[in-house]
Nucleic acid binder design. Structure first.
Length: 902
RNA sequence: GGGCGGUUAGCUCAGCUGGCAGAGCGGCGGCUUUACAAGCCGUAGGUCGCAGGUUCAAUCCCUGCACCGCCCACCA
């Protein structure tokens, strides 16, 4: 099998089908393996996925694929969310574009249309997830409006109702005039706006003067039912108990005293509108004031106001009221005033506080359990500091308004009997009144907040309230991965409802990531139009490149900037891996088809050389590092380590080093060892990379034949993830060569240092790359000398060296380029080619650096406190480094003095 | 008004329990080296926001300040 140029589009679909055909995403039920389950944060069926979803799902897929390779019983449950408000909003918009409304077509037709919309979005979303490569078990896919999940919703509602934790009440709620529905506190966005503070005169009813009130909302004065002052406010004490004549309306309303009023703010007298302000509503209750609602549901003024204002929008009415009061000489002054205003998250309209009958969850008892679970570590938060944010909210939690005046969602399972007034709360549909037997029942028109059903997701998806094998096996789930922006909306609700109904936390860990930003650090959003489309990026660079980029930017809790150039760069990395495989494959094929065919030997049956042992040692060090980082969820570090190892150690060094051996220049043993090692390390690296880049790793895994030259039968998905102990096992099989791994690694790095030193001097001296140069290596370290000597062919090739000599002393330095490394000096025979000035400058820079470091170190070492108090190892290390630097400095200075005068 | 996070190379960002400041991109110089120009070799560039403190030692821990961002919040 040979490989063409890397073309992601040509391989990705193929392997996704392969995984599906072999049912590799399904868990191994009954296997007894440790369960590891993730439930997907169900995307809204409002269209298509954005890059944030790609990020979230990439992280989950990495964790699931890794767990699977670690031998766990891995299950990732996919699904989607009906997203009540968001979806209804989209469909209503579509209807408007076609010149109709939901009211015109009716509830039934509207729901039918919305289901169609849902199907379409769902198809798009599933297609996108598959392109991304997610290994979800599609046979377990769920939707929040499924029959099973709807049963779970009803069970929860009825249970909480019977426990006295759900109640219906007439209260002041956040009303969205855009949605014509109540919304929860969380769905209100507060924004600071530049408004005004209007001061109006309210004439006293007895004609003895007036009271000045200050307000930011003049239009609500039409619903005023009192004026309030602070009981201790001397300015107004005499007025308490009197009445004012409400301008424009004519109503006579009392002046009351209440400690709520801040005497220092505004005029110290407040107009009270119990129908349109939560504080006024509370104050009104204390003083038995009437509540007058002066607005319709769409925030236009209703018939409770004088005729001229009826039907006006609230902002129109505001202008009108101000103008009219001014005309009447009752406007005392207007001040600019900055204050926070609540906006409906979905419709963007300013939220109107409104008195209405709604359903609420008394959430505190549930919250206490969730707080306890996080406090005692049953739920771990990554990053840890998010706990503080969580507690802050949970400890100040308010009752949750769960009814929505929408059509798309779970209908509230409550029926009202017109005959006897009974309120029937039932899990199953009710056709006759349970009280009076009458048949004229009305089901509650409202639906539940969409988060009510998604709050059940970790167990409703597993079949609750049935007692299922999935629940027994996979609840609690291992980890929940999502953005910190829905910590309260969703994570907190799941924690509360899961603990309440299942008696156990829904997940052991919450892994929170941040928001996506563009190359300028700006938040990616549709409205800004600066978002990258995941599908477009996949088309352009491949899913693997996108996934690697997202993973490499994943620091728990942190936002990520995602410039397109970074995806391109990582595509290049994949291309590198691709070409490394091509290289190895080329030699495998060449040797197999040679006169005496040689398949790739098993690693334990070859005699690995120094660099074989070095790269193997590094491979397994890296494997351990990567596993450690994955455990800590530091995906960025895992990716960085893999990238550096594969590119800069394996490709840049090891592959180059093997070339003479592969060509047979070093004998058959070396050839076998090099090929076996390349084969092995590449295969293991592909496994390490697989969770991050599943498609290309699978492709290359299959391209790389087994030891007998046979094609790979099994998916890389189910190979064991490399571990350090695999090296130990290898060493046992191979005999003793593993014992000197540490010194081998050190020597290998020294040899690399020699080559780099030679290259640096060559480069700085302007020696042409093709020109061989004679090098004399001066070293007093016999081990180093032996190592370099035994690797001479490779050193000579990679250093572009003609003759390589070793000496213990070297005095005739004129005409040589000079480089210093740790434990050696290299002299390049550059006679006539040395740019003396450049050389002097280069060495001068080295001298300065070395001297600076020496000053730093010797300062430290001269300090008795350091010698006494620092750990001995640190002191010894400093000593060692200092003496190495001192001898290096001496060498540099010597070569400086020997440079000919320019 | 409360709370949380950030400030590190030209840009975007890493940097685990304190012990030599890193990557990618970009810059500069040089390469048609038989896996790869989506490449190779070399290289420049940083008082780690400011001021104190703890420590033998601070980018890292503590305090204060300055900006930037986010979350929560019923002062009209």
């Amino acid at each position: 099998m040979s490989l063409d140029r890397y073309d992601p589009a040509a391989i990705e679909l193929k392997w996704y089908r392969y995984w599906l055909d072999r049912n590799l995403f399904a868990p191994a039920m009954g296997s007894g393996q440790e369960p590891f389950c993730i439930v997907i944060p169900p995307p809204n069926v409002t269209g298509s996925l954005h890059m944030g979803h790609a990020w979230d799902n990439t992280v989950q897929d990495i964790l699931i694929r890794w767990a699977r390779m670690e031998g766990k019983n891995a299950l990732w449950i996919p699904g989607t969310d009906h997203a009540g408000i968001a979806t209804q909003w989209m469909v209503e918009k579509l209807l408007r574009e076609r010149g109709t409304t939901k009211e015109a077509i009716g509830r039934e037709a509207f729901l039918k249309r919305t289901w169609e919309f849902k199907e379409e979005s769902h198809g798009t979303i599933v297609g996108q997830l598959k392109r991304l490569g997610v290994s979800t078990d599609w046979s377990r896919e769920r939707f929040t409006l499924d029959e099973g999940l709807s049963r779970a919703v009803r069970r929860v509602f009825v249970t909480l109702y019977r426990q006295g934790l759900i109640y219906r009440d007439l209260r002041m709620v956040n009303w969205s005039p855009g949605l014509l529905s109540a919304i929860s506190d969380l769905e209100v966005e507060h924004r600071d706006v530049d408004g005004h503070l209007w001061h109006f005169r309210y004439p006293l009813a007895d004609g003895s003067g007036h009271v000045v009130v200050a307000t930011t909302r003049p239009e609500t004065m039409l619903g005023d039912t009192a004026v309030a002052v602070h009981p201790d406010d001397a300015r107004y004490r005499a007025l308490v108990g009197k009445t004012v004549r409400l301008p424009l309306v004519g109503r006579e309303i009392p002046i009351v005293a209440d400690a709520y009023v801040d005497p220092k703010f505004g005029s110290g007298a407040v107009k009270i509108t119990p129908g349109h302000d939560p504080n006024d509503f509370e104050l009104g209750k204390r003083h038995g004031l009437p509540v007058i609602t002066v607005m319709n549901e769409d925030a236009s003024l209703n018939d409770e106001v004088p005729p001229p204002y009826r039907g006006l929008d609230r902002f129109e009415a505001r202008k009108r009221v101000v103008a009219d009061l001014k005309a009447a000489g009752l406007l005392e002054k207007v001040e600019p005033h900055k204050h926070a205003l609540g906006y409906c998250q979905r419709s963007g309209q300013v939220v109107e506080p409104r008195v209405s009958t709604q359903w609420f969850v008394r959430i505190k008892p549930l919250a206490e359990k969730a707080v306890a679970a996080v406090e005692d570590g049953r739920i771990r938060m990554v990053p840890d500091y998010q706990k503080k944010v969580f507690f802050e909210w949970m400890n100040n939690i308010q009752d949750w308004c769960i009814s929505r005046q929408l059509w798309w969602g779970h209908r509230i399972p409550v029926w009202y009997c017109d005959a006897c007034g009974a309120v029937i709360v039932s899990e199953t549909d009710v056709s006759a009144c349970t009280q009076c037997g009458g048949g004229s029942l009305r089901m509650d028109e409202d639906v539940l907040d969409t988060w009510f059903s998604s709050g059940l997701w970790p167990f409703s998806t597993m079949g609750w309230p049935e007692d299922t094998e999935d629940l027994r096996t996979f609840y609690p789930t291992a980890v929940l991965v999502t953005g910190y922006d829905i910590l309260f909306f969703w994570v907190a609700r799941m924690a509360m409802l899961g603990l309440w109904f299942m008696g156990r936390e829904p997940f052991h860990e919450v892994l929170l990531h941040g928001l996506l930003r563009d190359q300028y650090g700006e938040k990616m959003s549709k409205t800004k139009g600066n978002g990258l489309d995941p599908l477009e990026m996949i088309d352009r660079y491949g899913a693997d490149a996108l996934r690697f980029t997202l993973a490499a930017g994943t620091v728990p809790g942190r936002d990520m900037s995602l410039p397109e150039a970074s995806i391109e760069g990582n595509r290049n990395f994949i291309n590198k891996v691709w070409n490394a495989t091509r290289f190895v494959l080329g030699h495998v094929e060449r040797l197999r088809s040679a006169e005496r065919p040689q398949p790739v030997a098993a690693l334990e049956s070859v005699k690995p050389g120094r660099f074989e042992r070095w790269i193997l040692a590094r491979l397994y060090q890296v494997a351990e590092e990567v596993r450690g980082y994955l455990e800590q969820r530091r995906l960025n570090e895992a990716c960085r380590v893999l990238y550096g190892f594969v590119w800069h150690e394996f490709c840049d060094w090891y592959v180059e080093i093997t070339k003479p051996a592969l060509m047979g220049e070093l004998g058959p043993d070396a050839q076998q060892a090099a090929l076996a090692t390349l084969h092995h390390v590449l295969g293991e690296a592909l496994k390490l990379l697989h969770p991050v880049m599943p498609f290309v790793s699978e492709e290359l895994w299959h391209a790389l034949p087994g030891h007998g030259g046979e094609a790979r039968a099994d998916s890389i998905m189910i190979q064991p993830y490399p571990r350090g102990e695999h090296l130990a096992a290898l060493q046992r099989k191979a005999g003793a060569w593993g014992r000197e791994l540490d010194s081998t690694v050190r020597e290998a790095q020294q040899i690399i240092d020699v080559i780099q030193t030679v290259r640096t001097v060559r480069g700085e001296s302007g020696v042409k790359p093709r020109q061989k140069i004679d090098v004399t290596l001066l070293t007093g370290d016999p081990a180093l000398r032996r190592a370099v000597e035994s690797e001479q062919p490779m050193v000579v090739t990679l250093g572009g060296i003609g003759r390589l000599d070793f000496v213990a002393s070297f005095s005739e330095r004129e005409g040589y380029g000079h480089g210093v490394g740790n434990g050696f000096e290299a002299f390049l025979a550059l006679a006539g080619q040395i740019d003396v000035d450049a050389e002097r400058q280069r060495i001068g820079r080295e001298v300065e650096k070395t001297e600076a470091r020496i000053r730093q170190l010797s300062g430290k070492l001269e300090n008795p406190a350091f010698r006494d108090k620092a750990p001995p190892a640190v002191v010894a290390k400093s000593r060692e480094e200092l003496s190495a630097l001192q001898s290096q400095l001496a060498k540099l200075n010597e070569s400086l003095t020997q440079l000919p005068a320019s």
